[in-house]
Design a binder for these strands. Structure first.
Lengths: 150, 150
DNA sequence: TTTGTTGTAATGTCAATAGTTACAATTCCT
DNA sequence: AGGAATTGTAACTATTGACATTACAACAAA
């Protein structure tokens, strides 16, 4: 099973919001056309990012904007905002191991700390990457394509 | 989205196969009763573990057994055996970013190495845990419950 | 040949993702 | 005040993957 595309869509959205903030009004339609998904998908994720305190969204008049310093928005923040996952549930554990079997009785206790180690390792890495890193790379790519056009 | 329970089931299966290898014939029905899932689920995972070279399964007469040293069976081996995931696909990327947008055009290039870092971190940790660790903990728990019975 | 078992196909149920239409609520502009 | 653009959300559908279940052919040993 994969982590849903909501995560990469959310990163894409934030990158657009930052990159185009001075040129365009950032509406769900605008974002939808860069990402190529339905505007309603975008609005749902906008709400999740807003609830996480990462962006603000203007009703009526429209427009969304990042409200946190980019180097304080980690991939983990975005992951937690859009992925409906509770703590310690990256792995789906089979529900009803047989309590009358010595293995079935103890398997949960045995595995829990090990699975947590794995999830922690992943989240540590997510926490070490920020939107500022993404913007830096974007400018590099855009700069290169400009140079190529000369 | 979560990693499917096939993974914890597979670890449970291997633990049972090792723990009961001298006492019982390890059939899919036997494993199913410890894990509390349908025997057909077990047989499918048995096939995957066999294809990965971790166990052997006897047709006709029945019985499955681990054929690798426990400390050489890592969680990553099991994960790869049962999780139908290709390399670098932990994250589901949205398919059609707009190539006419500077962000849409570059977002894949920008994110790919960062997502790979996250997946690598997770796999490194999975690679550091082996079935031998699980068996060691199991014996500890079983020992304690025996002591408690005195 | 009987028995117990594996391997696998076929089918069903359920949950989550993702797409879409529709529209009330909101806000700005004139 | 009225109109235009936009957000927030409900409702519905389609698709996919997980997991459960029944059924049975293939197989191996007693």
């Amino acid at each position: 099973m994969q982590i849903s595309s909501r995560f990469t869509i959310a990163i894409h959205m934030l990158t657009c919001m930052e990159n185009f903030k001075d040129e365009y009004k950032i509406t769900s339609d605008f974002l939808a056309s860069s990402i190529n998904v339905n505007p309603v998908i975008i609005r749902r994720i906008l709400s999740q990012l807003r609830d996480a305190g990462i962006i603000e969204v203007k009703r009526g008049t429209g427009g969304a904007a990042v409200i946190k310093p980019l180097d304080e928005i980690t991939f983990l923040d975005v992951y937690r905002a859009v992925e409906c996952i509770e703590e310690n549930t990256l792995f789906h554990f089979h529900e009803n191991p047989n309590p009358d079997c010595p293995v079935g009785k103890n398997i949960h206790n045995i595995l829990d700390d090990k699975l947590k180690r794995v999830q922690d390792a992943m989240e540590r890495e997510l926490d070490a990457i920020t939107l500022a890193d993404v913007m830096r790379d974007l400018e590099k790519y855009i700069g290169e394509s400009r140079a190529g056009m000369k």
